[in-house]
């Protein structure tokens, strides 16, 4: 695994805390960098994506959840971990369910839990990127067929839905199988799900 695969960004409007967390992660073998402003990170993110982002929830202009949603759009393969000094049960549930967070950490931070979450996030990101890479070469039409296949539809039904002949769907399916190197429908479905 190259060093870039262990890249972690830390976003917190408390510069000292952001730096402390980044240094802590650095000591544990991650390549961590801290940001004071999430907007700054968004500006450079496309050029330098990370495996994992640890972000505060309550920030001035853009809160952690809004920031996470924008990162998700740019990079579905980045793991996101939230941390907050105002924990609520509702936010904790939302952070995982709606904003795709790996964990929701309470400040003062529990160091062991933070490290575990970041490790898990980095691993998840690696797996997710591999999945994404395998489906990245699909053509737009193959993509449509793929999406319907993993929902459990048969060739015939897909043909009806996309107004194609069953034979064409059959061809697309074979192509999808070869491009993703999947060995059967179960593996295809595994590729489509983030975990």
């Amino acid at each position: 695994m190259s060093i870039n695969d262990r890249k972690v960004y830390v976003v917190d409007d408390d510069a000292d805390l952001g730096a402390a967390v980044a240094r802590l992660l650095g000591r544990h073998g991650f390549s961590a960098q801290s940001f004071l402003d999430p907007v700054q990170l968004l500006d450079i993110y496309a050029q330098a994506p990370a495996a994992c982002i640890v972000t505060d929830v309550m920030m001035d202009d853009l809160d952690g959840f809004g920031f996470a949603d924008r990162i998700r759009v740019m990079d579905p393969g980045a793991a996101i971990i939230f941390m907050t000094a105002w924990p609520t049960t509702a936010n904790a549930v939302d952070s995982v369910r709606r904003h795709g967070g790996i964990d929701y950490l309470e400040k003062p931070l529990d160091e062991a839990r933070l490290l575990a979450a970041v490790s898990e996030g980095v691993d998840w990101s690696g797996r997710r990127r591999q999945q994404l890479a395998r489906t990245a070469t699909l053509s737009p039409r193959e993509r449509e067929v793929f999406d319907l296949l993993v929902q459990g539809h048969s060739n015939k039904v897909i043909a009806g839905m996309l107004a194609l002949s069953p034979k064409t769907v059959e061809d697309h399916r074979a192509s999808i199988m070869s491009k993703t190197e999947a060995n059967g429908l179960a593996q295809l479905i595994a590729l489509a799900s983030p975990d």
């Binding site: 000292d16 805390l17 402390a20 967390v21 240094r23 000591r27 400040k107 003062p108 160091e111």
Partner: peptide
């Protein structure tokens, strides 16, 4: 107050442990 304390305390705890 707890919120205000928890920010610097996070830093303090991490650095102290280090």
């Amino acid at each position: 107050v707890i919120h205000e304390i928890s920010q610097p305390l996070s830093t303090l705890a991490i650095e102290a442990k280090h």
